[in-house]
């Protein structure tokens, strides 16, 4: 018997809302949406946590410019404060090294992190989800109950087709989907994501492709000044 599975609910019990930011296709800006959403909520005074579960390509720490932090040990691991966010990631343990993990091992590492992380009381826990709907994402869905999903897509046909399938499986699993955000809009294929949302889920809005975002990576003050952050603040569902 795996005892860790019995403690995960307790570890998350004082969190009011758990928001999974997911995108079926890589490169849609899921991590940027998750990180900047967490920053924005923290700035609005919400007690906010951010959990980077994209173990294959963790990047929230790069977006937030997290360096030199490590969880405090006190009957578990307490996520350190990163720009007002309680931030947990596998990078505290891997450093800058690659983590060549198979799917089963990623799931096992996620279970470990969920079992030992002491979040305390939070209004929001934002989760940067593993990409796709393979075994790791399914394990996260199994382990973290009460997750509400925000899907991030680009207008690209490739991304919207994958998002359509992810939306279908989430709804088949009867998981709450708060809606769909269209990222990196360039004018081409405008409205594609809204069609995907259709009457299946809410279309939360579009965010234009923002060439200034790259220069703001790692600097939270600059991040919050970007057009990306300003448009995200208009389309996220917690206004």
């Amino acid at each position: 018997m795996d005892p860790r599975l019995h403690i995960i609910d307790k570890r998350l019990q004082d969190i009011k809302r758990i928001i999974a930011v997911s995108g079926g296709k890589g490169g849609t800006g899921k991590s940027s949406v998750a990180s900047v959403l967490a920053l924005a909520l923290a700035k609005e005074g919400y007690r906010t946590g951010l959990l980077d579960l994209d173990f294959g390509g963790p990047s929230a720490h790069v977006i937030l410019g997290v360096e030199g932090l490590f969880p405090e040990e006190d009957k578990g691991l307490i996520p350190p404060d990163a720009s007002g966010i309680r931030f947990m990631s596998i990078i505290y343990f891997t450093g800058d090294n690659p983590a060549p993990l198979r799917g089963k091992e990623i799931s096992n590492a996620i279970i470990e992190l969920l079992a030992v992380t002491l979040w305390g009381e939070l209004d929001f826990l934002i989760i940067d989800m593993p990409p796709g709907m393979a075994d790791t994402a399914l394990d996260v869905i199994r382990l973290i109950k009460r997750m509400e999903f925000i899907l991030v897509t680009t207008p690209s046909k490739l991304a919207t087709e994958v998002t359509k399938r992810e939306l279908a499986i989430l709804q088949e699993l009867r998981l709450p989907v708060l809606g769909l955000i269209e990222n990196m809009l360039t004018g081409q294929r405008a409205g594609t994501a809204a069609k995907v949302a259709g009457d299946r889920t809410a279309f939360l809005g579009s965010i234009d492709f923002d060439s200034t975002l790259e220069h703001a990576i790692g600097d939270v003050d600059k991040l919050l000044q970007t057009g990306f952050a300003k448009q995200l603040s208009l389309c996220h569902p917690f206004k």
Binding site: M1, P3, R4, L5, H6, I7, K10, E73, D74, K75, G76, L77, A115, V116, L118
Partner: peptide
């Protein structure tokens, strides 16, 4: 002291089993 978190998971599992 991360051992505490794992110990708590063991005891929670025992309580659930009971």
């Amino acid at each position: 002291m991360h051992e505490w978190a794992l110990a708590e998971s063991v005891i929670t599992a025992v309580v659930d089993e009971i």
